[in-house]
Nucleic acid binder design. Structure first.
Lengths: 192, 192
DNA sequence: GTCTATAATTAGATAGAC
DNA sequence: GTCTATCTAATTATAGAC
């Protein structure tokens, strides 16, 4: 294994650990030492590969949104629609079930008017929102409220899984629960 | 002003500051020094009135859920229904618009299986969920998915207000936006 | 590229003056 | 009841050995 390969593997391990810890504990609650431990390495190496905690957070955000990206593409590069609205929505809910971390990045960053919020909006949320506009066909207040209603309705249950288990007795990672939630969201947001 | 009065006023100021800071920055991101500064007092006094940061967090949670409580009561103490489902739901969305802090307490605590999460579920969420069951009339997986769909759809836009402004150009504290969101949620979750 | 050691800050909690 | 000073522990970031 070359040094460049070694470098990339370590960076990838750290980024994956960072995604998990940032999602679980928020930016302030996540320590670089804990992230290093989860990646089976040391704190010094984290700041060697990523100059600051902030830069690591951005790398982690790039990683989660990179995974989720394909789930939201509803058009081929050629421009023809690949799937209808129901299939896109189903994929969106299933992606949120598989990666509840995304929701935490959004909620954590979204409540503060700071650099991280602005970066996240410009880098990852704006493209997603404009894609949504295509899906909905409209702009204005209605697009905003609909976007957040879909995002909230689709994601919350998976993002507070420990709470949901204690409160309702049901485990949101259970395929039956995921399926029920997909069907509910489809019923809510599509005609039929 | 008696000493007991002084005590209560100071405690109230600290609790209100704590609600705001915990909601903005999460448990880990909120420092007792910042909370003290927002309450126009000192850090030493915070730990005098509330023995620990954890106890302060619980007092803050009691306060926000205490404010929100009346919005969810859909029956009079006598047992007769006060409002129909649409009015209850409208009140719920408007309460989330007025107090987006609640959502942050829920999301912050809900992702960790720790003491705070268990306390919040048992103390504040369980009564709310059982009330919801009355509203819906059913139990089981469907109740769980519906509960979280309503909570997420109703709350998210108000809880990430800075992000929403930058992403959509609309301010979720604008009465017109609140109204549009109320109408959307009503359309989604009630038979018209 | 990785690790250990450490510097500089900041955290929550305590003690004592008033 | 309030405030200042301080203790201990944990944080990010840096420096240097290998």
């Amino acid at each position: 294994m070359t040094r460049a390969e070694q470098r990339e593997r370590t960076r990838a391990r750290i980024v994956e650990a960072a995604v998990a810890v940032f999602a679980e504990r928020g930016f302030d609650g996540a320590s670089t030492r804990l992230i290093a431990a989860r990646a089976d390495t040391t704190q010094g190496l984290v700041t060697y590969h990523f100059r600051s905690k902030d830069e690591l957070w951005r790398a982690a955000a790039d990683h989660v949104f990179g995974i989720l990206g394909p789930a939201f593409d509803d058009v081929e590069p050629s421009g023809e629609a690949r799937r209808d609205g129901r299939e896109v929505l189903r994929g969106f809910v299933e992606a949120n079930a598989a990666h509840p971390e995304v929701f935490h990045f959004i909620v954590d960053a979204g409540r503060h008017d700071d650099d991280r919020m602005r970066w996240l909006v410009d880098e990852h949320l704006a493209p997603r929102f404009s894609q949504f506009l295509d899906f909905d066909g409209s702009a204005g207040v209605r697009a905003a409220t609909t976007y957040y209603a879909i995002a909230g309705a689709s994601s919350l249950i998976f993002s507070v899984a420990p709470e949901c288990r204690r409160l309702t007795g049901h485990d949101p990672s259970d395929p039956a629960v995921i399926d029920a939630h997909v069907e509910l969201v489809l019923r809510l947001f599509t005609r039929s």
